[in-house]
């Protein structure tokens, strides 16, 4: 009986295929690839843990200044995350309203031809490398600031914030456009057939429907903003003081890491502190992204339902 089954033609053909091999190799690639994620997370957290022999969490986040060369080293990152919040806050303040109106334009008003030009343009804007943005800000905004505000150097939280705004805006536009496009077209036609203006339909029906999706996009843009490195590094001014005003210089978390990492030796407290700063950044970004990914389907259903 069993020999009969084993010699059945279907059986033999199966034995000849590459399937088991391909199956195994592709699975292996997937497992290795995805495990780099866990490797990074665990490794960063493990290296970061070393800092808490030197300072407590509250000192690290809130009280100590950053003087790694002091004896013993003083390792606080208050100035860095305050700068990060400032820069990202300015960026969102500019990019969110502009981005939402732009998305409304693309989804609700623009003729197809205009839309087909505008969207690739924004894609290019999103693709410009961070370091090029930093350079562009340096030769435009920073120079203008020196003239307008009579500053000795124009690098500032504001300059960094404005450039990061340009960087996250295309992202806000694309997620908001996606959310608006998910609202069924029939709402627009039926709404307009009641003799109201397009704006009224948008305000009463379409925006409320798309709002959760737009909100998710803004939160994700925040996560991108705080992870932005080169532009913030080149434009914020690399100052260790806690910034108080828009035109003060500052140093974002990413700027701190990028500035100091090259000079930190493995195993030192400074090295651990830089990893702790990275861990703070990483956990925040993963929490935001993970959270949004988990509820994303529900958000899209809200728009369509």
């Amino acid at each position: 009986m069993s020999t009969q089954v084993a010699s059945h033609p279907a059986r033999r053909l199966g034995g000849l295929t590459l399937d088991p091999l391909v199956w195994m190799l592709t699975l292996l690639a997937l497992v290795i690839g995805v495990s780099t994620f866990f490797l990074i997370v665990v490794y960063v957290l493990w290296q970061a843990a070393g800092v808490f022999g030197a300072v407590s969490l509250s000192e690290f986040l809130l009280f100590e200044p950053w003087v790694p060369l002091a004896e013993p080293p003083r390792l606080g990152i208050l100035h860095a995350w305050v700068s990060t919040v400032y820069v990202t806050g300015i960026a969102l303040l500019v990019a969110v309203p502009l981005g939402i109106v732009m998305a409304l334009f693309i989804a609700e008003i623009a003729p197809t031809a205009v839309r087909n030009v505008l969207q690739p343009c924004l894609e290019v804007l999103a693709g410009i490398p961070s370091v090029v943005y930093g350079f562009f800000g340096y030769v435009t905004l920073v120079v203008w600031f020196e003239h307008i505000f009579d500053m000795t150097t124009g690098v500032s939280i504001l300059a960094a914030g404005l450039i990061v705004a340009v960087m996250v805006m295309p992202f806000i536009v694309s997620t908001a456009t996606e959310a608006l496009d998910a609202v069924p077209r029939s709402f627009r036609e039926t709404g307009m057939s009641l003799g109201v203006t397009r704006f009224y339909v948008i305000r009463r029906i379409i925006l409320p429907r798309a709002l959760p999706g737009i909100f998710a996009g803004i939160v994700l843009a925040f996560a991108r903003g705080i992870g932005e490195t080169l532009a913030a590094l080149m434009l914020a001014g690399n100052s260790l003081a806690v910034p108080k005003e828009l035109l003060d210089r500052g140093q974002t978390l990413t700027g701190l890491i990028a500035t100091e990492l090259g000079e930190a030796a493995l195993g030192t407290e400074k090295f651990a502190a830089l990893f702790a700063a990275s861990a703070v950044l990483m956990l925040l970004i993963l929490l935001i992204n993970g959270g949004i990914l988990l509820i994303k389907n529900r958000l899209l259903r809200h728009a369509q339902g």
């Binding site: 029939s186 709402f187 036609e189 709404g191 057939s193 339902g305």
Partner: peptide
């Protein structure tokens, strides 16, 4: 006008 498919608004 009344359309073919009833289209109540999400409110």
């Amino acid at each position: 006008i009344i359309h073919q498919r009833p289209q109540p608004f999400p409110m």
